[in-house]
């Protein structure tokens, strides 16, 4: 930093620019100035600059320029890290992860298979249930049909029996009547012939029989 010093000379005012260190570090030694500057850069490199400026922190390379040693250390450690990761650490980690994922996937697949099997079993069971149900329905139908048939035949049988019995009864009653008629006729014929015998003294003729039958037929029946 320059300081303009104005003095009164013989001809008026003189202006002189004198270099003066800033920060009062003008008459410090380099080592003393380090106390003011907490983190100075390389001491040897800028020691001669210090002689001019008196303050080692003030001047230096532009803060945005890369420094060779940092480039070297940073780049070196990155490259070492990258090589380690790329060829040793990551593949090992990845292998474990892949193995576990494969196992999990396997488990999932197994679970899927088990689920599919269970589903198949359920469908099978349902199919079996349906066939059994159909069979049962069939059997019930068949039983119902046989039952109906049996009832029908039984009914028919019973009807036939009833008819036969009725027939038989009618025949019996007819026979009984005929027998009774015959009895009555023979009795009447007997009586008539006896009466005639007593009356005329001889065995009745055939005409008596015919006449009785005639009367019987017309009288009794009416």
């Amino acid at each position: 930093m320059l300081t303009a010093v104005v003095t009164r000379g013989a001809t008026g005012f003189d202006v002189a620019f004198v270099p003066q260190a800033d920060g009062g570090a003008g008459d410090m030694t380099y080592e003393e100035s380090l106390d003011f500057c907490e983190f100075p850069f390389e001491e040897a490199e800028f020691a001669d600059q210090y002689e001019a400026t008196g303050y080692p922190c003030e001047e230096g390379p532009s803060p945005i320029l890369p420094e060779a040693k940092e480039l070297l250390w940073g780049g070196g450690s990155f490259v070492v890290f990258l090589v380690l990761m790329r060829f040793f650490l990551y593949p090992k980690l990845r292998k474990g992860m892949d193995a576990r994922y494969a196992k999990v996937e396997d488990g999932l697949e197994q679970a899927d298979a088990a689920r599919a099997a269970a589903r198949a079993e359920v469908t099978e069971y349902e199919a079996a249930l349906a066939t059994v149900r159909a069979e049962a329905a069939e059997r019930v139908d068949a039983a119902r049909a046989t039952l109906a048939g049996e009832r029908e035949t039984r009914l028919a049988e019973v009807n036939a029996e009833i008819a036969a019995q009725r027939e038989a009864a009618m025949a019996e009653s007819r026979a009984a009547r005929e027998a009774a008629e015959a009895d009555v006729r023979s009795a009447v014929t007997d009586v008539t012939s006896k009466v005639l015998e007593l009356a005329i003294g001889r065995a009745p003729a055939e005409q008596v029989d015919a006449a009785v039958a005639d009367v019987m037929n017309s009288e009794v029946r009416s």
Binding site: F39, P40, C57, G60
Partner: peptide
């Protein structure tokens, strides 16, 4: 100055 908060004393040569 910016350098003072950005540049660091070497712990050993070239290693800051």
């Amino acid at each position: 100055p910016l350098n003072e908060i950005l540049r660091w004393r070497d712990l050993f040569p070239t290693f800051n």
